[in-house]
């Protein structure tokens, strides 16, 4: 067999991203039909239930929009937590992580692939929540805010998935009981990110601390831009700038975490599950 020229590191990186996104894309595109129920229909019920709570309490109409937008963003957090942060841990259990590590690719490329695949899947879910919730409950959005809100949303996603990469490294290394760890992070983040209420209600101090999570700022910015008059932490421009600053910070932290993780794992044998 003739030996092909060695591919460049960037080619390996890009091919890995696409290849790792592929299983998530094919599952979304109909190979696993149960996904439609578990990933779209059932989560939609949670959002609808919360809207009914607000309606029963005669909350102001913008609050229904709060809930619908919160339901959209919640999908991304769940994706980051359950399908990204925990993924390497499951991959280690079935031996796939070993194969990633001994290949010439980088774990960061694998994670990026997971993230892209996850974003596609989750965006489908978020779009259904947004469309159904908005139509069902007659939520009106500020037309002029759509484009800036999309911009803030994209920056939020980038920062969020960079944070997800950091969590993936931490979970892999410390997460003997990943299930509990994920659960422990799920509800508190729902709470401090203000998925179903304006985070400012928690006082500026708690809101400020919660701003370390891209979701908090992103959701607050998108709500301000689409639902004028919403109670907010600070202006959407400032929030988007802080989010933009979080991107390189979390990306750097993720690269650092994976470098340290691999070094330590090779030293301590933590990438290996099989016996001596």
């Amino acid at each position: 067999m003739t030996r092909a020229p060695s591919p460049s590191a960037s080619s390996i990186f890009l091919r890995t991203v696409y290849a790792r996104a592929y299983p998530r894309l094919v599952s979304t595109l109909g190979r696993e039909r149960s996904w439609m129920l578990t990933e779209i229909a059932l989560p939609l019920l949670g959002t609808i239930a919360m809207v009914y709570v607000y309606q029963a309490l005669h909350a102001p109409r913008p609050y229904l929009g709060f809930v619908v937008l919160g339901g959209c963003m919640l999908a991304y957090w769940q994706n980051v937590l359950w399908s990204m942060a925990t993924q390497f841990y499951w991959d280690r259990d079935n031996g796939t992580l070993e194969l990633y590590v001994i290949s010439p690719t980088s774990l960061f490329a694998v994670l990026l692939g997971m993230a892209f695949g996850g974003i596609v899947v989750t965006t489908a879910r978020a779009a259904v929540v947004l469309a159904t919730g908005s139509l069902l409950f007659g939520v009106a959005y500020e037309a002029g805010g759509v484009v800036p809100a999309l911009g803030a949303f994209v920056v939020t996603l980038i920062a969020l998935y960079c944070l997800g990469s950091v969590l993936a490294a931490l979970f892999l290394f410390y997460g003997r009981d990943v299930w509990n760890l994920s659960t422990a992070l799920q509800e508190p983040v729902y709470f401090v990110s203000g998925f179903y209420f304006p985070v400012r209600s928690l006082t500026a101090y708690v809101g400020g601390a919660a701003s370390l999570l891209p979701l908090t700022l992103g959701l607050d910015a998108v709500r301000q831009l689409l639902l004028p008059g919403a109670v907010a932490l600070v202006g959407p421009g400032v929030e988007t700038l802080v989010l933009a600053a979080q991107v390189p910070f979390y990306a750097w932290l993720a690269v650092l975490a994976f470098r340290k993780l691999e070094e330590k794992a090779r030293r301590e044998g933590r990438l290996v599950l099989r016996g001596a």
């Binding site: 092909a4 591919p7 460049s8 080619s11 390996i12 091919r15 890995t16 696409y18 290849a19 790792r20 592929y22 299983p23 094919v26 194969l99 990633y100 290949s103 010439p104 690719t105 694998v110």
Partner: peptide, 12 residues
């Protein structure tokens, strides 16, 4: 598909 996926980790 699975075999293709792993080949991509080597940049084929």
């Amino acid at each position: 598909e699975q075999l293709w996926l792993f080949s991509q980790l080597h940049g084929m």
